[in-house]
Design a protein around this nucleic acid. Structure first.
Lengths: 260, 260
DNA sequence: ACAAAAGTGTTCGCCTTACACCCATGG
DNA sequence: CCATGGGTGTAAGGCGAACACTTTTGT
């Protein structure tokens, strides 16, 4: 029973451009430069090897904090990539997460010649298959934004509805009707009016809202255990049993691979 | 750099009850009995350790074929479970897939005292955290059925619209309007009329359809590579770089874990 | 007073849902 | 010719897109 492959954890991090005062924000992704072979010198997703005594999500949060200095507001498993030819010479399986960080968090981020923020549409050449992974994460972000209230995770604690709309417009890359957007998010019941208003605008001051996190519409699965049961109708045959491996759990996704 | 954890691959397999002639079919899941410690004697998801030279989905298909004798029509990554306390004594990370098999495939399945089919709502006690995983897979199956044409993967090559509706009704556990269901699936453009009809019914013979697999609405991500780029604006700091791991790709999902 | 964005009201059209009805075959 | 499910037609209701309109601030 060989270990099979080395296990790594990587994260695709999304943040917004520190808003250019009036202009629409855009998505930015921090990447780190590889200091070793293989693919030394190229840009890659932050990550690292999985320690024996660390949960997957914890490892993702730790490695991204170590490399970029960020603590994400939202962290979610993306997919596990395990093809044979991903890394030259060695078999590596990567459990990839994606994360959203607050705009004001970006200030605390590591600034370094080896850590760099790239705009969504001016990405450099990436190491390994990281470009495909990043594109996939972008698809997921866009898909999830349309049915889930995660946009707030890219803003600060409080925000205006217009700012929230700006996030949606930036991520979805299309204009949204202010009136309809307002009604939609108000109807979702996930926003709480703080009572305060944002001053300093050169027009009517907008209300500031806070996100209501007391209602997750996409709950994590629960674990439970019971007591053994016999096999109801059993035939007779021989069957060599490979070792069965245990599993864990987290949240919700979709992925497809056809196989005849 | 330790291996971190042992890597396993497991699969949640779904099939339909060989239809009870008129009655609504129901979901069945094959489980295997564990022949070793830990959790020896309990029922578990089919699976095995990941070999060094095998892709994840290939390993999933192989292990489920070896244990159950089945070749799934649909195979898709579910989630990767990697908590610390999943398996007593050893750290195991499991990449879990879920699969759909044709009704007629079930006949070829292994019949054994150690391989047993369980109805969706009469499941036994499961080993490790497999019960939570199974419930999660069920949630995903139900969610995906509503926006994706995967129901046919539980039937044979050809099927009537009523049979297809039966699958939806069984999985979603609610009645569907025959007229509206017909129009919906016909409008989706994924069905091809075979010209033949199903005989032997005690009423009007229904048309037999085939699934049109030439249009996947949920494409797999693509990989591409380019050429290096410099870091636009770079500050100055020191940064210890953990090894960055490469990643792979497949299809689409959603999962959530919050982290302050 | 004017500009500009916040916020409200209302209409239009589509799409889903519900259900009435005809069609074709076995008994 | 009747029962049964296959298959078609159609009207009602809900919901989102589009857009006119009012409100509130800064300059």
């Amino acid at each position: 029973m060989p270990p099979g492959a080395r296990l790594a954890v990587s994260t695709v991090i999304f943040a917004l451009t520190p808003d250019a005062d009036g202009d629409l924000p855009s998505l930015r992704i921090p990447l780190v430069r590889r200091l070793r072979e293989p693919d030394k010198g190229r840009w890659a997703l932050p990550g690292g090897w999985l320690p024996t005594t660390e949960a997957l999500d914890v490892a993702a949060a730790r490695t991204l904090a170590e490399t970029t200095g960020l603590t994400p507001k939202h962290l979610e498993q993306l997919y596990t990539f395990g093809d044979l030819d991903r890394s030259p010479g060695e078999r590596v399986v990567s459990v990839v997460y994606w994360a959203l960080v607050h705009t004001n968090e970006i200030a605390h981020a590591v600034s370094d010649s080896n850590v760099c923020w790239f705009d969504e549409d001016s990405l450099p050449d990436l190491a390994f298959d990281h470009r495909g992974i990043l594109d996939y994460a972008l698809r997921r972000l866009r898909t999830k934004l349309e049915y889930s209230g995660i946009a707030h995770a890219l803003l600060g604690e409080t925000f205006t509805i217009a700012q929230l709309r700006g996030v949606h417009e930036a991520v979805l890359r299309r204009r949204l009707d202010p009136a309809n957007f307002r009604r939609t998010v108000e109807a979702s019941g996930t926003l709480v009016d703080t009572g305060t208003r944002l001053a300093g605008t050169r027009h009517r001051p907008p209300a500031l809202y806070r996100f209501d996190d007391t209602s997750d519409p996409h709950p994590a699965p629960l674990i439970r255990t019971q007591t053994p049961t016999p096999c109801p109708g059993s035939g007779t045959a021989h069957q060599e049993q490979p070792p069965i491996a245990p599993d864990e759990l987290r949240e919700r996704d979709f992925s497809t691979t056809h196989q005849g």
